[in-house]
């Protein structure tokens, strides 16, 4: 009989508990029917199919679950969630995993990094203006992802149809928006 490391088991349980709490989902309910993966439109490009991500969570495999690119590529389309025979909202589980992985700066592959960078830039725009400024967000994304001319054709297309605005539209009561970001940070650090 092989030895069981109780410290590892405890860590596994902590992870299962953390994902269940943050997603609000009964992750133990999944019985691996695979319906989520069968219907997932993005599964073809994921390194780990959604049902296996779910299994990793059930087994408490923190490292493997948080380092796959699937959690970043999930588009939150929620097809899995509405088809799950056990009513597990898997999109919400993916969201929780993304949040945990994001806080621990775990987006490492190119695909994952690009999603994380896009999200970060998007939020920066809201933090500064209260709203998304598409042009600046796109430009910053291109610069920071080291591909300055990526989507340049898209930008030109948009410009030609009057769909790019350089003028920044701000929420007037920016103090309220700033308060939201500050208070969230404060509460999370408590």
């Amino acid at each position: 009989m092989s030895a069981i490391n109780l410290t590892t088991t405890l860590k596994h349980e902590q992870f299962i508990e953390q994902v269940s709490r943050e997603s609000g989902q009964p992750v133990q309910q999944c019985y691996q029917c695979g319906k989520c993966t069968a219907g997932c439109p993005i599964a073809f490009s994921m390194d780990v199919p959604p049902n296996r991500v779910m299994r990793m969570v059930q087994l408490g495999l923190r490292e493997t679950a948080l380092s796959c690119n699937s959690i970043w590529l999930c588009a939150y389309c929620s097809t899995c969630s509405v088809r799950c025979p056990k009513n597990v909202n898997l999109a919400q589980v993916m969201d929780a995993l993304r949040i945990i992985a994001g806080k621990e700066k775990r987006a490492k592959t190119a695909r994952a990094r690009h999603v994380e960078l896009f999200n970060r830039n998007f939020l920066n725009s809201i933090r500064r203006y209260g709203r998304l400024h598409e042009f600046e967000t796109m430009t910053m994304y291109n610069l920071k992802s080291g591909q300055p001319f990526k989507n340049a054709d898209t930008g030109l297309y948009m410009l030609s149809r009057g769909k790019l605005k350089f003028l920044i539209q701000k929420t007037s009561q920016m103090d309220q928006v700033k308060q939201i970001f500050a208070r969230v940070k404060e509460l999370e650090e408590k």
């Binding site: 939150y76 969201d95 949040i99 999200n119 970060r120 709203r131 309220q176 970001f181």
Partner: peptide, 25 residues
């Protein structure tokens, strides 16, 4: 009047409380 961005995917993929609060305002 004076609406702000709902936070979209960027917010709910980053922080649950932030996403809810941006929409709640």
């Amino acid at each position: 009047e004076d609406w702000n961005c709902c936070g979209s995917t960027a917010a709910h993929s980053t922080n649950h409380l932030l996403a809810l609060s941006l929409s709640a305002r």
